[in-house]
Nucleic acid binder design. Structure first.
Lengths: 123, 123
DNA sequence: CTAGGGGCTGGAGCATACTCCAGCTCAAGC
DNA sequence: GCTTGAGCTGGAGTATGCTCCAGCCCCTAG
């Protein structure tokens, strides 16, 4: 895949793809005869997974560490499992906080609705 | 309340409290005889609410807009309700994505556990 | 054979959200 | 009355995560 195809398929900009490669999030892909990146299809799934880690708040430095370990193969299964398990707990906590906030916003919206009703009827 | 007390009660640093005041997230509190900030107790609740908006991903610029409207009183009930309702939908979407990611990480952790087992038993 | 489009590199620049610092003032305890 | 500590201001600096640019190289189509 050319870099433009990967960009379209993942939603990341071409600059971001090169940036991710530079910091070690994406393996440097092989080059074609003209020196241009030629990504394997599998990179799409990997980038999608990175996106989920990102969207759930895993910082870049930690994603880079995970990517490094992935490159090292079977020797890092345990380390990777532990990283995911730890992040899972972080996500669980955020989830709970999101649910609280959702409930709070429901209450606040209801309060505002009531205040607006009182205003408009000149109570 | 002195600024150090607010800092302790909210977990925000003193510098952050002054920064939040500068950008309009916190009302400038009255000053004591020596020119030092003397916060009303209510600021604690407000900062906690800001923290929840923050933790659920509302950007600073939007939190500032909400704070401005809050300062304008009853005339902005509708605008504020709409902001919260809009953010609520954003939070709902993030919540769904978090739940997906949680499920994905459960699967991945299980896969790693299996791989580790195979490694250690020299399959 | 040449014009255009895509891709390349290295490095600068930017937005967000703080964080730190110098140099000053004030008030209270010893 | 002097030291100490908390607080003050304005402005510079930092970390994160991209985003943009200049100047160059290829390949392809007309």
């Amino acid at each position: 895949m050319k870099i433009s195809a990967v960009s379209k398929a993942t939603g990341l900009s071409i600059d971001t793809l090169r940036f991710y490669e530079k910091i070690g999030l994406i393996d440097p892909p092989p080059r074609d005869g003209a020196g241009r990146r030629d990504y394997p299809e599998e990179v799409i799934g990997w980038i999608a997974f990175l996106g989920q880690l990102n969207a759930t708040g895993m910082p870049q430095a930690e994603r880079v560490r995970y990517a490094e370990r992935r490159r090292q193969g079977a020797a890092t299964y345990t380390a990777r499992r532990e990283m995911l398990a730890a992040h899972r707990e972080v996500v669980r906590a955020k989830l709970a906080l999101m649910q609280d906030t959702l409930a709070l916003m429901d209450r606040k919206v209801a309060i505002y609705e009531q205040l607006e009703a009182e205003e408009s009827t000149d109570v």
